[in-house]
Every structure is written in structure tokens, then in C-alpha cells.
């Protein structure tokens, strides 16, 4: 078990290292003078921002320093939580801007991921080997999983927000309100949360249902299922075993899907102008706020790594074989 976690942590550490290095390298890959080209391409309204940007880039790229020390400086800044100053939200530090958006993104993603996983697995397990259900769950699942996240978001936004007018279509809370711990504000938060949550939930649902259906069918045809059936074990017992064994790869699947789910959350936020990381990225791109883009990149990587680790821990709890000192999980 220690070896299992050791391997995982090593991979995650390596991944983080690679991500930071990529983050550092990319601006330096750009042809020409990076400082000049970025300042030129940034559309900044405030003159102080231009000056700050110039100073920051010059400092960061530190043309008077060697590449090695530039690289170490980059790490040093990172460790102290210094991601630079945002151009778009000048003069706020990038870290603060991102931390302000993180709760919204997490509040959207965590319930959507967990619920879609639970409901999807349940629907998939029901569908397996039941002709009638299978014929509905499967096509619906494939359509959902093939739908781009933003399109479902747009359709829901248009249908419920514009045509029916029953739910708000933009923002994280009513523009008339200031964030506070009042019931009014919380109610407004909840109202604005429903549609983005629903779009994320729906698309993710399809993938889990299909995955579970296929896994269960595979498990029901496994040798141990046949053996139990030959010994007259009731369907109930066989299905219980199959379900349990089919859930295990679905947990691993959750880890594999994180990247896709994050991407889905980002575009969904953009559709609903939901004040999370996704909208931040859109603003950053529109304003050529490179510090902000690089900062969000690292935050996303970090978040995904942490989530991966949590899933690993859950897997060890659920799959007894990993605890018995076996290499039960290959991922």
C-alpha cells in the first residue's frame, strides 16, 4: 500500500514539476522579444497597468539573469504564492483573483461530478441486461456524452432562462445584491446555480451510464459469475458482486475524466457568465492577461492533482485488494 501511494505521489510530483516547467517555458518559446510583444498585444486601459506589466515582465524574464536563475526565481515566486499581478483586475494579485473564483467553480463541479457519477452508475447498472431500459438508456447516454458542454448549457439557458424566463441566465447571484450571509443572497446563489449545475450534470451523466452498463455486462459474463450461476446462486448475489466489481473501474474512470469535467465546467461557466475560473479565463484571454492565464493553468493542474489523490485514497478504501498488499489498481 505504501508502495502504491509512493508511486502515485511520485507521478503527481513529476506532473506538477512538468506543468510548472511548461508554464515557465511557453512565454520564452515565443519568437521575438516576449516583453515587447506582450505589452503590445495586451489591451490595457490603465497606464499604470502598462508600466506594471512592463516592470513585471522585465523582472520575470530578467534578461540580465541566466536562464537557470530565471527558472529558480520562477519557482521561488510560486512557492510564496506570487503569481504576478492581474492586468484585467489591476492591481489585484493573480492569486487573489483566482481564489475569489475558486469557490464558485468548486461549488458547481463537486456536486455535478458526484451526483452524475452516482446517478449514472445507477442508471447504467439498471440498464445492463434489461432490454427495454437498455434501449433507452444507451442511446440517450450516447447523445448526452457526444454533446458539447457549452451547447447543453446554451440550450438550457435559452429554454429556461429566455423562453420560459423561470431561471436567471447570467452571473453567480443577482446583480442587485452584495455578497453577504443573508437568506436573500443565498437564495439568489441557489437560483443562479441550478442551470449551470444541470448542464454539467447532464453531459457527465451519459458517460457514466454507458461506462457502467458496459462494465456490468462484462462482469456478468465473467467466469466467477458463471460459476456462481452454475452453483445456483440467485441473480441478486451475482448482480451484487458484478456491481461492486464494475464500480471499481468507474472510480478510476473518475480520475481519468477529471480533465474533461474541468473543461466542461469552464465552458459552462462562460455560457452563464458564472463568476468561476472559466469566466476568469475568458476575461484573461480577451484582455491578454497572461499572468492570469498562467495562474489559472497552475491552479487547475494543482486542483486536478489533489482530486486524483483523493480518488486514490477512496480507491484503496473500496478495493480490498490494494489493502491486502496487492497491486490491485494498475493506474
Amino acid at each position: 500500500m505504501r508502495q502504491y501511494f509512493g508511486r502515485k505521489l511520485f507521478i503527481y510530483g513529476l506532473t506538477f514539476f512538468v506543468a510548472v516547467t511548461v508554464n515557465w517555458l511557453i512565454p520564452r518559446f515565443m519568437p521575438g522579444d516576449p516583453v515587447a510583444s506582450m505589452v503590445a498585444r495586451a489591451s490595457i486601459s490603465q497606464p499604470e497597468a502598462v508600466a506594471a506589466m512592463q516592470a513585471y515582465y522585465t523582472d520575470l524574464f530578467g534578461l540580465d539573469q541566466s536562464l537557470i536563475s530565471q527558472y529558480f526565481n520562477f519557482w521561488a515566486a510560486l512557492v510564496t504564492g506570487d503569481f504576478g499581478i492581474s492586468i484585467w483586475a489591476y492591481p489585484k494579485p493573480v492569486a487573489d483573483v483566482i481564489l475569489g473564483a475558486v469557490p464558485y467553480t468548486l461549488g458547481l463541479m463537486i456536486p455535478a461530478i458526484l451526483l452524475s457519477w452516482l446517478v449514472g452508475n445507477w442508471a447504467g447498472a439498471l440498464a445492463a441486461r434489461r432490454k427495454l431500459l437498455d434501449n433507452t438508456v444507451l442511446p440517450v447516454g450516447y447523445i448526452l456524452t457526444a454533446t458539447p458542454y457549452m451547447w447543453i448549457a446554451i440550450l438550457l439557458c435559452w429554454g429556461f432562462g429566455v423562453v420560459l424566463g423561470v431561471l436567471p441566465v447570467a452571473g453567480g447571484y443577482s446583480f442587485a445584491l452584495q455578497p453577504s450571509w443573508s437568506w436573500e443572497f443565498i437564495g439568489s446563489l441557489a437560483q443562479h446555480w441550478v442551470l449551470p449545475f444541470a448542464s454539467l450534470f447532464l453531459v457527465a451523466l451519459g458517460g457514466w451510464a454507458i461506462g457502467m452498463r458496459n462494465m456490468i455486462i462484462y462482469e456478468l459474463e465473467a467466469d466467477y459469475s458463471n460459476y456462481l450461476a452454475a452453483l445456483g446462486a440467485p441473480h441478486r448475489l451475482i448482480r451484487r458482486y458484478a456491481f461492486r466489481n464494475a464500480v471499481l473501474p468507474q472510480i478510476t474512470g473518475l480520475a481519468l475524466q477529471l480533465g474533461v469535467l474541468v473543461a466542461g465546467a469552464l465552458v459552462t461557466e462562460i455560457v452563464f457568465s458564472y463568476p468561476g475560473i472559466g469566466s476568469l479565463i475568458l476575461k484573461a484571454i480577451q484582455n491578454k492577461d497572461f499572468f492570469l492565464i498562467q495562474g489559472t493553468f497552475l491552479f487547475i493542474v494543482l486542483g486536478v492533482l489533489i482530486a486524483n489523490f483523493i480518488i486514490d485514497v477512496v480507491y484503496v478504501v473500496v478495493d480490498p485488494r490494494t489493502r491486502a498488499g496487492m497491486a490491485g489498481a494498475s493506474t
Binding site: 507521478i11 503527481y12 513529476l14 506532473t15 512538468v18 506543468a19 511548461v22 508554464n23 511557453i26 512565454p27 518559446f29 515565443m30 481519468l256 477529471l258 480533465g259 474533461v260 474541468v262 473543461a263 469552464l266 479565463i281 484573461a284 484571454i285 497572461f290 492565464i293 498562467q294 489559472t296 493553468f297 487547475i300 493542474v301 486536478v304 492533482l305 486524483n308
Partner: peptide, 17 residues
Amino acid sequence: VVLVIPTLAVLLIINAY
């Protein structure tokens, strides 16, 4: 390593530049 890094985030930063 490539599997764990969220694809869209990498593409985001490369494409942005």
C-alpha cells in the same frame, strides 16, 4: 504524466500564447 495534466488547460496556455 500526460494523462493527469488536464488537456484543455495545457491547450489553453499554448493557444493563448
